[in-house]
């Protein structure tokens, strides 16, 4: 009882003493866990390197300013490639995720076994970063834009699939029943009652993922999967920080622009 009365003075606690104790204990355990983790990090860190970190950082920034604008022209093609990787990759991913989400949603799946299988695909795709997919694909299909697109597509399947099947599971059942009652077939039910309800979520999710994919595709070049990351990697290896800065500025502008487009489209859809 949070309210206790002892010889004419009242005391009040937000929680039961036992519960409060439990909360303090949880905080304590969390703190200890954090400190243990920090110890592991600290043991694996060469702290001497840190003494000149400020100097290093400043000199890095100094070498980046001013950016080397002369390479801007030669960066346009890689930037175009990056956009293509993101866009085509997203399109491919969405195209695969779309049927997959209907197999995964509890209310539209044809068979529980199929649902399990589709869920496994979605989970694996989500758990693995686009860059890892790219590393794998580069060894399989060779370096280049194609590997990048496939990597983006493979990563997007899980993301789009998950959000989409959750949207399908949340649809209102009444319109579905109404269409079913009119004697419509399975495909007709999907087209006339389910599809209109998930359309906003579908477009919103696809555009949102596209926005994320623009960002992701800027680094795929690091493992040879095409795009502006290739030039960035080369510039870093040559310690040409002025060029790196130019790449950064271009990436910054592109990402801001894509975020703006994505926000506009999503605002229009919802």
């Amino acid at each position: 009882m949070p309210l206790t009365e002892t010889n004419n003075t009242v005391a009040w606690q937000r929680r039961e003493p036992k519960q409060q104790l439990l909360i303090w204990a949880a905080w304590f355990v969390g703190l200890v866990l954090f400190l243990i983790c920090w110890k592991v990090i600290s043991d694996n860190t060469i702290w001497e390197f840190l003494e000149d970190a400020g100097v290093q950082g400043m000199s890095l920034i100094n070498r980046m300013i001013p950016p080397d604008w002369s390479i801007t022209g030669s960066l346009m093609r890689p930037l175009w490639d990056t956009l293509n990787i993101a866009t085509v990759g997203t399109a491919l991913g969405v195209a695969i995720a779309f049927p997959l989400s209907f197999l995964t949603a509890r209310n539209t799946t044809p068979h529980p076994l199929l649902r399990g299988l589709a869920l496994t695909v979605i989970v694996s795709s989500r758990s693995i970063n686009a860059l890892i997919w790219a590393m794998l694909l580069v060894t399989i299909v060779g370096p280049g834009i194609f590997a990048g697109m496939m990597a983006i597509a493979l990563r997007s399947i899980g993301f789009v699939g998950k959000l989409l099947y959750e949207a399908i599971e949340e649809i209102h059942p009444e319109p579905v029943e109404a269409i079913q009652a009119s004697g419509a077939g399975r495909a007709q039910v999907l087209a006339y009652s389910v599809w209109p309800q998930i359309l906003p979520a579908f477009v919103g999710t696809a555009v949102y993922r596209w926005d994320i994919n623009i960002r992701e595709s800027t680094v795929l070049g690091l493992v040879g999967a095409g795009g502006i990351g290739l030039q960035m990697n080369a510039a870093i290896n040559n310690l040409a920080w002025g060029q790196v800065a130019t790449v950064f500025v271009l990436i910054f502008a592109t990402v801001i622009l894509s975020e703006w487009v994505s926000a506009k489209v999503r605002a229009a859809v919802y």
């Binding site: 600290s42 694996n44 860190t45 060469i46 390197f49 840190l50 290093q56 950082g57 890095l60």
Partner: peptide, 13 residues
């Protein structure tokens, strides 16, 4: 990460 590796050196930090 590239930026911070350049700053504080390789490793988990």
């Amino acid at each position: 990460a590239i930026f911070f590796v350049a700053m504080v050196g390789f490793g988990p930090l």
